[in-house]
Design a protein around this nucleic acid. Structure first.
Lengths: 120, 120
DNA sequence: ATAACGATTAAACAATCGTTTAATTGAACT
DNA sequence: AGTTCAATTAAACGATTGTTTAATCGTTAT
């Protein structure tokens, strides 16, 4: 049971061809989760910043013109998603982009899309 | 007025260096808007499908195991974001990924992230 | 210890979002 | 014209999200 129904209509592409290799739900979940985090302008800017520098919360807040609780909240989400890492230096907590293939790919994609979308 | 304050702390990187070339709000908005649309699993799957095939609403709904109103709703959002296009053939409305650099870049990024995140 | 500073957490709020059901529009047939 | 099928729209609902304010936790220094 729980078998998918056949396609209502068949056009150019066969059902097998169309539905055959949709990415798994796990893959879709992983990709959309990463995209979701960067779908918020505040988090995208923070992530972009942390791809270029390691900074403490206050400086991030200042650069982004946000309150530190707000920044902290976004940092927690980015960290939960594995996009950034933190390490404490004295009483300050420093954040930077994680050194992973996923982050490298996202960073590259963002810069490419940015260069397409606009001109800075 | 409306001048940004100086950074609370200065570390390795100068303020100029850190804040100097943050992408413009327009660029950030454009990128995050695209990411936001693909941050929903349903829309990501639909977008992925439409990168590989042109299909009508019912077939998309069937392949995604969703109702057609739900699919229609997501299609409208994806279309508003310029990620997909539509054309009518008889009484069916066909959708496919838009033929733009932005879409190509997103598609490439998604496949790359998918190959990193998991193995289908 | 205690004071000062940085960061996080908690609670509350408005706002946005995704899904469902039902009603409506649009196009192609008899 | 009227019927049928596909797609969209509308309204309603619960769930999630982002931001703010205030309170709390951790670390350093006096």
């Amino acid at each position: 049971m729980n078998e998918r129904q056949h396609l209502p209509h068949l056009h150019d592409m066969s059902e097998e061809e169309l539905v055959g290799h949709i990415p798994s739900v796990e893959t879709i979940a992983a990709v959309s989760e990463a995209m979701k985090q960067l779908g918020d302008p505040s988090r995208l800017r923070i992530f972009w910043l942390l791809c270029h520098a390691e900074e403490c919360v206050q400086n991030i807040a200042s650069a982004m013109d946000m309150s530190s609780p707000a920044v902290s909240h976004h940092l927690r989400l980015l960290k939960s998603a594995g996009l950034i890492v933190s390490n404490r230096k004295g009483k300050e907590m420093f954040y930077r982009a994680a050194d992973t293939d996923l982050v490298a790919s996202l960073h590259h994609g963002i810069e490419q899309i940015a260069s397409i979308s606009c001109m800075d």
